[in-house]
Write a protein that binds this DNA or RNA. Structure first.
Length: 465
RNA sequence: GGCGGCAUAGCCAAGCGGUAAGGCACGGGUCUGCAACACCCUUACCACCGGUUCGAUUCCGGUUGCCGCCUCCA
């Protein structure tokens, strides 16, 4: 069974067949860096990081590229307000981005190109579009001639005529057609600008992705992804630009994630109802945030609230606890004997369930359910009087692999302070002497230090609470 | 006006033709010196109205409600 991907272009799930066997070229639209990212911005980063991980798990060699928009109106305005250089501002927020996203368990892309590093490529690209008649200069700006591109609207399934009826499209005196969009913007006095055949200016928003995707991945890429709100006009425009340029298909699979809602309303910078990752990760374990987001299918909206995140935290905890308990048992399990197939088969079944879920358009909600199957099975196994090291290892290895795909590796072992260890010993003695008040006293003391003790038939185990 | 999404237990959330996965919370029980962890048990007229079908939560039509894109936006 191969991986199925829901393709916005065809509005269907399609078997995933990359252009080149075993290799995937993937481009994910990155942020405009003039502020910390909010949790809505974080969703695609988490979702597509997970897609990448699963593709890798499935044996693909993934070339993953994600850009930074480091020059545009909002950046210029913010820099002006703060009295900061554009370059300083963007550098600052690019670093913040890596910190936030890293905390959320997202790996770096193979390349993180920036617009300002590709101005020459962009100018060259636009020049070709002008030569081919797909673009025209007007008062120092350059616009894309939307009407000229036959497939315009094929991604968002809109016809140009219908789009024009949309009440909010403003007529521009300069443009030939109201749907035409800027490839190059003439600079205003004092603005950051680059030389071009059309005078000083800077790139429009959409052109950068077309150019950077091509520079880093080639004319045709396998997967192009981003938030749902980029479908139109951003991705539609990218297709128009790139396909006019190369005459080839730009991207084979288009993936779009749903929004994060607050009180059932889209979270967005313009609405002002956003929560910054930078802030929230001081209160909520970023791993919990990631787990929470992956507990819903990526194309569906997810509502954000404190309560929901808390219950997600409890769920994640259950997984972590089962894993810890498995490891704890390693200390008292038997080393001999064959693996007990009845248990390893159950592990295999859960893994298969996980893979089936992920194969189905990266259904992380079901994949997580499969992990809970594993939790359940592990807990039942742990009820056995005698456990076998081989079986325990089999469980642990499965947990490691699956959680790695989800980008939620387990917390490593932390060594206890000698003092705490001594207390646990002392408590053990007290319990043997049936001095329960002293035993409870020690347990409470440790609890205050964030150490939770659990007595089992195989000895006392502890965890950080 | 155009295009699209969603409506499943107290909450979250899968399923999408054969009368409902999983998680969280609640209640009852078992285990425990007491706990904790864990295990067992219990909990759904799938928004409404029609239609297709031997059979629909799943397909088709309609209704209602909510949301999104068409403007910068993940």
């Amino acid at each position: 069974m191969s991986i199925q991907i829901y393709n916005t272009l065809t509005r269907k799930k399609e078997p995933f067949i990359p252009l080149e066997e075993g290799k995937v070229k993937m481009y994910v639209c990155g942020p405009t860096v003039y502020n910390y990212i909010h949790i809505g911005n974080a969703r695609p980063v988490i979702v597509f990081d997970t897609v990448r991980r699963y593709l890798q798990y499935s044996g693909y060699d993934v070339n993953y590229v994600s850009n930074f928009t480091d020059v545009d109106d909002k950046i210029i305005n913010t820099a002006n307000e703060l009295g900061e250089e554009v370059g300083e501002l963007t550098e600052r927020f690019i670093n913040a981005y890596f910190e936030d996203v890293g905390a959320l368990g997202c790996g770096k892309a193979d390349a993180h190109p920036r617009v300002t590093e590709h101005i020459d490529d962009i100018v060259a690209f636009i020049k070709v579009l002008v030569e081919k008649g797909y673009a025209y200069e007007a008062q120092g700006d350059v616009y894309y001639r939307t009407r000229k591109f036959d497939g315009y609207g094929k991604l968002s399934h809109q016809s140009i005529d219908e789009l024009r009826v949309g009440a909010r499209i403003e007529e521009s005196g300069i443009k030939e057609n109201s749907l035409d969009f800027a490839l190059w913007k003439a600079a205003k006095e004092g603005e950051i600008a680059w030389e071009s055949p059309w005078g000083k200016g800077r790139p429009g928003w959409h052109i950068e992705c077309s150019v950077m995707a091509r520079e880093h991945l080639g004319d045709t890429i396998d997967i192009h992804a981003g938030g749902q709100d980029l479908t139109f006009p951003h991705h539609e425009n990218e297709i128009a630009q790139s396909e006019a340029m190369t005459g080839k298909q730009f991207a084979r699979y288009w993936m779009h994630n749903g929004y994060i809602n607050i009180d059932n309303e889209k979270m967005s910078k313009s609405l002002g109802n956003f929560i910054l990752v930078h802030d929230i990760r001081k209160q909520i374990d970023p791993k919990v945030l990631r787990f929470f987001m992956l507990s819903v299918h990526y194309r569906h909206p997810v509502n954000f609230s404190q309560d929901l995140v808390e219950s997600a935290a409890n769920g994640l905890d259950r997984i972590q606890t089962a894993y810890n308990n498995l490891k704890h048992r390693l200390g008292t399990s038997a080393d001999l004997g064959d693996q007990q197939d009845i248990w390893t088969h159950k592990v295999d079944e859960a893994v298969r369930l996980f893979e089936t879920a992920m194969d189905d358009d990266f259904n992380t909600a079901n994949a997580i359910a499969a992990v809970f199957e594993l939790v359940k099975t592990a807990n039942v196994y742990l009820l056995e009087k005698n456990t076998q090291t081989a079986v325990l290892d089999y469980f642990i290895s499965a947990f490691d692999r699956l959680m790695e795909v989800l980008g939620l590796p387990f917390n490593g072992e932390e060594l206890l302070d000698e003092e705490i260890e001594g207390l646990i010993e002392e408590r053990l003695t007290a319990r043997k002497e049936r001095n329960f008040s002293r035993a409870d006293e020690i347990r409470d003391l440790l609890k205050e230090k964030g150490i939770i003790l659990e007595d089992t038939a195989q000895g006392t185990r502890w965890k950080r609470g």
